[in-house]
Design a binder for these strands. Structure first.
Lengths: 321, 321
DNA sequence: CTGAAAGCGCTTACAG
DNA sequence: CTGAAAGCGCTTACAG
């Protein structure tokens, strides 16, 4: 229809629409085509275009359940970096599940320009026929491209902070998700504690990343923590720490006097909890931005120096800051 | 490749893969095809398939910036209802922006089975060449399909609650987003107040849906509210109310004694703020579920009775509950 | 029950 | 500078 209206061939329309008309199509004809496109409100059919080209302008970001508002930051970073050249679409896994190789398979079909995977399930082979960049996947296999946090500065600062406040025996509330990043957080925390002369309680607990689940898990162990002499609890995510705060509040435990609490993520709402929550802030937007840049580099065939993005401690009232 | 391996034609493979082989392909051949598919890890190419069919199995959900964790609920509702037959992908607008007709245009190209649009920008013509269902779009034009909240029960209960607590002069903190749903919340609140003999302060304020923006906006007007004799402030969203809580906390204002605070959404973290936040709970998952059902009904050509989903009040400590 | 063929709407060498 | 033609990987009448 556009070609007809512009009085030219379909091939010429394609060239103009894709901006490949420089030196190939004369000015007047190109203008006529553009007028016709505007008049008819024509948009290139994505299916036909990516079929012919072999690839499209879609970038897929596969993320775990968005109930953790932290991912909004990551998404924003990706979006801002991708710009107009690519179209970002998101896929979220089921509640509590992590992205798997099967998810990757499903989106390969769309012939995207690339796929980003945030916090993939541990031990899955994350490779596809299109460029893939993993986010927050510290166990990524050799040969895969991954962008990770450097947790050490944040965790070391947290442990030093707890130590300064006199804590010598603490507990850890882990997430249930089978993700490498949680494993690493836990391990690095244990190691930092050991180095600082702090012992970590044998009484462990874990919960899904929701306030309700964390509150339930906390109720089950809070007595045991108390009897074990625990004075502070560190949760693998702020949403988990919220559950601890809620239980502490309803039991009349004073935070931080009776029990200090800290988390990971530094969510926006962590500055308004009762009391405000100490948290290891992870640079989510930066993670998204860096991952998108690496994907673009892969697509364009340029190389990028890998860097880990440092976490930092945000001390607040929940640990007596 | 699959056809070759199974010793059959491409057409037969297509039939088997799409489950249209009943009474058309013999059992042994169908089995051979399935074996070949498994062995080769074949998946249908989405672009080619939707080009040939004219439509695909994608459902697109266009939502505003996800920094409001409330949308996670909506998404979950949609996901759970869509099931395996359709593949859900999300698109998020830029921070603070609402979905527009242009976003719809962009995703039409993908030939999705349908498009869901949450909280579209006010006054945009939201129609497309594929089925569209609007969520939380109380100003939707005639002829468009929309699923909305019934805010009355929640707002009436909130105003009655404030009245019972002795509030006679209150303020409203609005969102900046150009969405009908915010306009309606404000208007219904004003009307309910008028009916209950409560006056609403002329000192208005509005902010983006982030804690930081809301805190900033609150700082600018909190003096004026005080001088105006305001005893309670209602925010158009919980994230806005968090900003009020933060400013109150840093100024030494007691909540609810000096200033009562309430919001809309009932986010998971609202039970752990300082103090816990009274909120008009909106059934987000239900909204997503209902919208997905209506989309499926449109696709299948069946009719559905429209229903609005009632909001309800969750009273907490921030209003003295 | 099975396969050869047309066509979905594009892009891209290629010939003119 | 421009257009006719092949081909991207499927699906679906249609003929056998």
């Amino acid at each position: 229809m556009v070609a007809e209206r512009a009085g030219t061939s379909i091939a010429t329309v394609s060239l103009v629409v894709n901006g490949k008309d420089r030196g190939r199509v004369s000015q007047p004809i190109a203008d006529r085509v553009r007028d016709a496109v505007d008049a008819l409100g024509y948009v290139v059919d994505h299916a036909a275009s990516s079929l012919a080209r072999g690839t499209g302008d879609l970038v897929v970001l596969i993320a775990p359940d968005l109930s953790n508002p932290f991912f909004a930051e990551v998404i924003r970073g990706v979006r801002d970096t991708l710009g107009d050249r690519y179209q970002l679409v998101l896929s979220v896994t089921e509640r509590g599940a992590q992205p798997t190789a099967a998810d990757l398979r499903r989106f390969e079909r769309l012939r995207p320009a690339g796929i980003l995977v945030d916090a993939p399930a541990a031990g899955e082979p994350m490779d596809a026929s299109v460029p893939v960049v993993l986010l927050d996947a510290p166990d990524a296999a050799e040969g895969t491209t991954a962008v990770d946090y450097d947790l050490a500065p944040g965790i070391d600062a947290l442990v030093a902070h707890l130590r300064d406040r006199g804590h010598r025996h603490v507990a850890y509330l882990d997430g249930t998700a089978r993700v490498a990043t949680f494993g690493i957080r836990h391990r690095m925390f244990d190691e930092a504690c050991a180095a600082a002369g702090i012992t970590v309680s044998e009484v462990g607990a874990r919960a899904d990343l929701t306030v309700d689940a964390a509150a339930l898990a906390t109720e089950h162990v809070v007595e045991a923590w108390h009897e074990d002499g625990v004075t502070a609890v560190v949760a693998a995510a702020d949403t988990l720490a919220y559950g601890v705060l809620r239980v502490a509040g309803s039991m009349g435990l004073r935070v931080p006097e009776d029990l200090a609490v800290a988390g990971f993520d530094d969510l926006p709402s962590s500055s308004v909890t009762a009391p405000a929550l100490t948290s290891v802030a992870l640079p989510g937007a930066e993670l998204g931005r860096t991952a998108a840049l690496r994907l673009l580099a892969t697509v364009d065939g340029t190389a990028v120096e890998p860097v880990d993005l440092p976490a930092r401690l945000v001390p607040r009232a929940s640990t007596g800051a």
